[in-house]
């Protein structure tokens, strides 16, 4: 039951993030919204893991490990986007 609650929260996070992604014109805010969507998707994995509790474990470790990998990858993506933004907002490089 509580897992389902977090699942619904994850679904709502995806929705809220999507709204932000569409509505905010600035790239930094889009990046924040993108991270919200990511958090929602990861929560879906968390719920899937929690529902699959078995063998004395409180959750299925496979989706949990996948989320750990996913969080690191999402961070790398954000870092790359941030670098692009920093370059774009700076002065044009003199040739």
């Amino acid at each position: 039951m509580s897992a389902t609650l977090f699942g619904l929260a994850g679904a709502a996070l995806v929705g809220i993030g999507l709204f932000g992604l569409i509505v905010h014109p600035t790239a930094l805010r889009k990046l924040l919204a993108f991270n919200l969507v990511g958090a929602g998707v990861f929560l879906v994995f968390g719920v899937v893991a929690r529902r699959a509790a078995a063998a004395g474990l409180a959750g299925d470790p496979v989706p949990q490990a996948i989320v750990i990998t996913g969080i690191v990858v999402a961070f790398a993506a954000t870092a790359l986007a941030a670098t692009l933004l920093a370059r774009l907002s700076g002065p044009e490089e003199e040739p």
Partner: peptide, 20 residues
């Protein structure tokens, strides 16, 4: 931290469209 730093360094916001 990354985004906070980015916000501090940006001289002007980078816009990808019109305000909604």
């Amino acid at each position: 931290l990354l985004l906070l730093r980015l916000n501090g360094r940006m001289r002007h916001p980078v816009s990808l469209g019109e305000p909604a």
